[in-house]
């Protein structure tokens, strides 16, 4: 008769066990904010379709202090999303060689972050250009 009795430990609260897991969960939670922003935009779009008054109501709501604070939080989470997205990116790419040398993970992350900065600046400048 076997006296084995393997003990299975609970996974409850696993994300609190390691700072790395906390960071991972923070990354995943950014999705809630991305969803929230998408909903804000979708509401704006629907209001736009409903006519000028409706749309301007939406614009006015955006100017409320609550909305401004909320968007500041959104901005922070989006920046964290950008940072974490390119941080995990080297894991998602096949091993690459340039000139016979392996492309290091740091270079992929760096290139991604640089691309994000350029893209953001481009969006800002284009919007400003078109608007004025």
């Amino acid at each position: 008769m076997s006296k084995r009795r393997p003990y299975v430990r609970s996974m409850d609260g696993w994300w609190k066990r390691d700072a790395y897991f906390v960071k991972y969960m923070a990354r995943e939670v950014t999705a809630v904010f991305v969803a929230a922003y998408a909903v804000v935009l979708l509401v704006g779009l629907v209001r736009l379709a409903q006519g000028q008054a409706a749309y301007e109501g939406w614009l006015a709501a955006l100017k409320s202090p609550l909305s401004l604070v909320f968007h500041l939080v959104l901005l922070a989470t989006f920046v964290y999303h950008t940072w974490s997205w390119f941080n995990i990116m080297p894991k998602t790419m096949p091993i690459m060689f340039v000139g016979g040398k392996r492309v290091q993970p740091g270079m992929i992350t760096g290139a991604g972050l640089a691309a994000a900065v350029v893209a953001c600046l481009a969006v800002l400048l284009i919007v400003r250009g078109v608007a004025s």
């Binding site: 959104l74 989006f78 997205w85 969006v123």
Partner: peptide
């Protein structure tokens, strides 16, 4: 990741 921060900054 690429343009999200810029969009939030502009619209919000």
């Amino acid at each position: 990741a690429l343009i999200g921060p810029a969009l939030v900054l502009i619209t919000g």
